[in-house]
Write a protein that binds this DNA or RNA. Structure first.
Lengths: 341, 341
DNA sequence: TTGTATGCGTTATCAA
DNA sequence: TTGATAACGCATACAA
């Protein structure tokens, strides 16, 4: 390793007997510069492995050409795919992305957002952590906060563009599907009942029950956690005590937990209990039994969110603050909700 | 949105009737400054939401406090977990990570690496794309290239610290396991036979066959691709034409493809063919049938790689260039290799 | 077409 | 303990 003196624009200029401004011009498109000198410069630059210093450029130009992506967690198929979509758009635009995981910790979220006002990112794409807190901190920054786009998990009362799916409709459809397959005691599994997404999805569930005149049993609404072992305990308890014939999980992870709990208890899916869940798992067909899913267009959500942000960056004012893009999820019927009767 | 003039150190200094140097000192630990002024400054900073400009600091300090992570792909459980490990260490150190996915494209890898010599990152942690190419470009940068740590997929001939698993041993064990379960015609599925990891894993397979006096049939070495549909075609062809009784996949994705192909052909796992694969899938027990895996300590690999890099950054010269950390993978026997006889 | 000079926001050196 | 000043590497306005 040793001394790390990367060659800078001065070195390059000296090596070419040119001024730094001329060299600088060779790397920008619009400036006046003769073809030959430009080629000479680019050639020498390659030879010396010159790379314009990112920090100096950004400081000078007052923009970073990077966008920050804040998500609750990374080990999650939905967010992986969404980030992938964002990354594709960003790359096309010559931008980089900086990823932050809040681990569903509100403090971290606030800290990240505040921190980002140091010029490190030109804009933010975020899926929020929770909303049991006072998040008006976003409004406090309002006058000069960074361009911000929400996706999937949003704060309803913060007015900024967002890309979401039709969670109410999807939940309604999912619940109806369970009912059609013969379920009458359907448990609803949520991680955080107060989360905007948790609430919306639950409304769909409740309304579907009502429409089919199935009485609502509050005990069947189960509040789970983010801890695997704790969830298994909760679910085993739930499955034995309440004997549901259907389980609707509002989050992918809880579908897996339901499988594990059922295995341990010797409860058969779908014979004893049918399972449906929101999930972006690509190998859902390979599960035992294959899992019926409501699948969000995760990559597309990322793409739309990025497009929205870039529109805001490229043409300030061109995107209404209350703009919302709503995409449709898709129901994939598989064996975990098969009617064996 | 509007004008984005973040408050800078000058604004803050003016608001306090102090010089910028004094203000700057308040944010550094070692400098002399009176307790009261420091508190006054920090308080006002909070009030005005002042964040030291990241680019200016980095330009001035000549270090970025970020490390770059280069991986072949992101939609991969192993790399997700490894990145997670890296991120944990980096965060503790007050560093950020910048993630780059090469999509197994060697050109991109070269371009990323070159690009990173613009001061954007202080070091690089990388899992390489392929090695069918001339990658001595890394050596060309050698004199003043960034501190670099390889993990999992490495270039054998580039001398830099690395964190790997004992792939030879794991493959040997995996193949032996299949043999013990009664397999005699074991197909070996690789994505790139020339890849360092592909080669090492294949040697383990070959030696295990030899040790059990099972003749080696070259046709059973299958070179697959990164395209799902193409792989399915290759595997269906292979399963029908060669009738293996065991399949050893050197990459997670190929195990899934084998499942799909078998489903489509009506071939039963594990009755007709047993399957084992390298995989970091956490829900392997939920597959149909549950998948026997060789699982690498992915998160730990990331942690070790990051620790190594930070050691290099903190104490230049303290890590030998040929340092290698070797971790053990673990074999999880499940139903995909069950002996039903 | 090319060169000179200035400033982006910060920190370190030196002087007060 | 605090302040003035220069420098980090680059890009632009302006001069040549």
């Amino acid at each position: 390793m040793g001394i790390l003196h990367n060659v800078n624009i001065k070195d390059l200029a000296r090596a070419l007997n040119l001024s730094t401004s001329t060299v600088s011009r060779a790397f920008r498109d619009n400036s006046d510069i003769s073809k030959e000198t430009k080629e000479r410069i680019l050639c020498k630059a390659k030879e010396l492995n010159y790379q314009p210093n990112h920090y100096a450029s950004n400081l000078r130009e007052q923009r970073s050409k990077t966008i920050a992506v804040i998500v609750p967690e990374l080990a999650n198929n939905f967010f992986s795919l969404a980030i992938h979509g964002i990354e594709r758009v960003a790359r096309d635009k010559g931008y980089h992305i900086l990823i932050f995981a809040t681990d569903d910790d509100f403090e971290k979220e606030v800290s990240f957002i505040r921190h980002l006002h140091n010029g490190r990112a030109d804009g933010i794409i975020m899926s929020v952590s929770g909303e049991a807190n006072d998040h008006t901190y976003l409004d406090e920054l309002a006058e000069n906060r960074l361009p911000l786009v929400f996706f999937d998990r949003v704060y309803e009362d913060i007015i900024t563009p967002r890309v979401i799916t039709n969670d109410y409709k999807s939940s309604f459809t999912a619940t109806q599907h369970l009912i059609k397959q013969g379920c009458e005691r359907i448990a609803y599994l949520a991680v955080n009942k107060n989360h905007s997404i948790g609430k919306t999805r639950m409304r769909g569930y409740l309304d579907a029950l009502a429409k089919s005149n199935i009485p609502f049993d509050e005990k069947l609404i189960i509040d789970c956690t983010n801890k695997y072992s704790k969830n298994i305990k909760i679910l085993k308890q739930m499955l034995t005590a309440l004997k549901p014939d259907g389980v609707f999980t509002s989050v992918e992870r809880l579908a897996f937990a339901t499988y594990y709990a059922s295995y341990e208890l010797g409860i058969s899916i779908p014979k004893d209990v049918k399972v449906i869940g929101f999930s972006s798992l690509e190998i859902a067909p390979l599960l035992n039994p294959s899992l019926t899913t409501i699948t969000q267009p995760a990559t597309q959500i990322g793409i739309e969110a990025a497009n929205l942000l870039f529109k805001m960056l490229d043409h300030p004012g061109s995107v209404d603050a209350d703009k919302r893009v709503v995409l449709d999820s898709k129901l994939f019927k598989r064996n975990s909700t098969a009617n064996l009767a």
